[in-house]
Write a protein that binds this DNA or RNA. Structure first.
Lengths: 280, 280
DNA sequence: CACTTGACACCTAGGTGCGAATTT
DNA sequence: AAATTCGCACCTAGGTGTCAAGTG
C-alpha cells in the first residue's frame, strides 16, 4: 500500500461524506455542479451475487462481528467497466451507519425494534483492496472481490479490520479513486474519485444471529457452513436468478429498479442506485 | 503486474545472462566496468532458512516437478536491505541450468550419474513476486517469500509456472529491478537491476524423489508432510542453526564462507556468493 | 435478561509423499 | 528398466454456526 496515495484522497472522501449529507439526491445523468475527471466519470460498477444479496436483504441481512474479525457473507464483489485501462486506480470500501439508532431483536414477532440512539461511533476505517493500486485494465479483467475484508467489534483492533458497533445498521460503500500523477493533484482530489452504494448490501452487525431465517440462509449458501446443512445439497444455485422476487413493499421495488442493471457513476457522489440512498 | 515494466528489464536480464557466461567471476568490491544505479548498487540480500537449505544441499537437493505445478521446499525466502525506501522495485526469480547434462540416479551407491547431454531447454520464464512493484521500504519491512512459485515439467503450461526439465539440475536466481521513472530509462536498463544466486539453493528437478535421505528430510521438515513422520516431533528446529556443519569438501567450505553472512550486490552481475558460481 | 465470548465439530481449500498403474 | 502420472490418506490453515459459559 502506498501511503502517499492514501493521504491524497482522504480529503476527497471526506468531501463525499459531507456532500451526501447536504444533497438530497443524485439524478441519473442530471446536471452537475462539479465535473469529475474523465478517468472516473464513466466508471460503471455491477454488484455480483445480486440475487443472493437480495434474498438476504429481504430477511434483513445480519453480519457477525467478532473480536478477531469475521468475513462478510455474502462477499462484496463487483464487476467494473468504463475505466481508463492504462490509468492507475485505488479501490476501497468503507461502512457508514444507516441511521443514528441502536436496535434489538424481538423474537416473539421476528422483527427489529429501535432500542435507543446509536452508541458512540466506532473508529471509521477504510479497507483498501489489496491489489491497489493497479491499472484500470487489471481491475476490469475480472471480478473484484473483497473477500479478505473482516468485520470486528473490537474498538482497539490493530489488524486493520473494519470496526462496527454490534446492533447497529450499516451501508457498505465502494470507492474508485484515480491516482492522478499530476503535481498538485490534491487540488483536484474531489474530481478524482467516485463512490457506489448498493442498498441490498445493507446489514445489521451482530455478535450472534438473531433471525433464524438468516442463519438458515447462511447455512444453505455459504460453503463453509455445509456441515450444518440438513436439506438437499440441491438448492445451491445462487448468483444467477433470485429464488423469489422482491416483495411488494416500496423498498423492494426500489432495489429491483435501481440495481437490476449495472450502475453508472453520477457527478458528485455516485450511488449504485441513484435514488436508493440510505434513509438519513 | 505492469506489462510496460516487464518489457523494460527483459533486456537487462538478457544482458545479465550473457555477462555471466563471458566473465569468469565477480570479485567482492572489485573494480567495476559498469556502474550500477544508486538505487540498486547498495542492495544486500540474505537467504532465509540457510541451515535447512544447507542440510538439503549436502544430500543433493531434489525438487518435485508435476504437470499441475509443485511448490519448492524449502521455500525461497530472502531478507533485503540497502534499498532506497521510496524507490519502486520489481522482484523476480528465474532458474538457470547448472550444466548441459542430463542425470540419472544410481540407487546401488546412492549417487547421481551423468546420463548424456541436456534435453532441449524448457521455455525460460520469470516469476515476478506478486507484490511487485512496491517501494523499497515495503520490501525491506519483512521477509520476502516466493511461496506461491510452482515448478512444472509441462512444456505447454499456461498457469505461469516455472518450466523445468526433470533430471536436470538448476540454480535459482533472484533479481532486484529498480523501476526507473525517467523517460528513456530503457537506455539504462542494464544499470537498474542486480542479481543474486545462492549456491546452496541448487537442486535436481525430479518427478519422484530418488535419494531416500532427501525424502526423509522433506518429511521431517515440511509441515505438510507431517502425516508421514514416524520419529519424535522434536527435531523441527530448522532455520536457526545447522544441525551439522558442512562437511570437509571444497564445496561445503565454499558455501560456508560465501553465504554465512548477508550478501552484497557486485558491479555487473551480482551473486550471493561471488566466487561460488555454478560450474559451467 | 440481553448480549458477548470462546471452545468445538465440521467444513473448504490445498500442500504432502505413497504406491499402484501407466508410459516411454 | 526407468521415468512419469494419478488417486489417495493425511496433513496445514482457516472459515462456519453451535452451544455453554461468561458479562453487565
Amino acid at each position: 500500500m502506498y501511503m502517499e496515495v492514501c493521504l491524497l484522497f482522504l480529503l476527497g472522501l471526506a468531501l463525499s461524506q459531507s456532500c451526501e449529507l447536504s444533497l438530497p439526491g443524485c439524478t441519473d445523468g442530471g446536471a452537475l455542479f462539479i465535473t469529475k475527471a474523465p478517468q472516473v466519470c464513466g466508471v460503471r460498477v455491477q454488484l455480483e451475487m445480486q440475487a443472493l444479496w437480495r434474498q438476504f436483504d429481504q430477511l434483513g441481512t445480519e453480519m457477525i462481528v467478532t473480536k478477531s474479525g469475521r468475513r462478510m457473507f455474502p462477499t462484496f464483489q463487483v464487476r467494473i467497466s468504463g475505466m481508463d485501462p492504462s490509468a492507475e486506480y485505488v479501490l476501497l470500501m468503507d461502512f457508514i451507519p444507516v441511521d443514528d439508532k441502536r436496535y434489538r431483536y424481538a423474537f416473539h414477532n421476528s422483527s427489529w425494534l429501535v432500542a435507543g440512539r446509536a452508541d458512540v461511533a466506532a473508529p471509521s476505517r477504510m479497507h483498501f483492496h489489496p491489489d491497489s493500486p493497479a491499472p484500470g485494465a487489471q481491475w476490469m479483467k475480472q471480478t473484484v472481490s473483497f473477500d479478505t475484508l473482516k468485520l470486528t467489534n473490537n474498538l482497539l483492533d490493530d489488524n486493520g479490520h473494519m470496526i462496527l458497533n454490534s446492533m447497529h445498521r450499516y451501508q457498505p460503500r465502494f470507492h474508485v479513486v484515480y491516482v492522478d500523477p499530476a503535481p498538485n493533484s490534491h487540488l483536484n482530489a474531489y474530481k478524482n474519485f467516485c463512490s457506489f452504494s448498493f442498498p441490498e448490501t445493507r446489514f445489521m452487525a451482530v455478535t450472534a444471529y438473531q433471525n433464524h431465517r438468516i442463519t438458515q440462509l447462511k447455512i444453505a449458501s455459504n460453503p463453509f457452513a455445509k456441515g450444518f446443512r440438513t436439506t438437499d445439497p440441491q438448492d445451491a444455485d445462487y448468483g444467477s436468478l433470485p429464488a423469489s422476487l422482491p416483495s411488494g413493499d416500496a423498498f423492494g421495488r426500489l432495489v429491483q429498479r435501481c440495481s437490476g442493471k449495472e450502475t453508472q457513476a453520477c457527478g458528485l457522489s455516485s450511488h449504485g442506485a441513484s435514488a436508493a440512498k440510505p434513509e438519513r
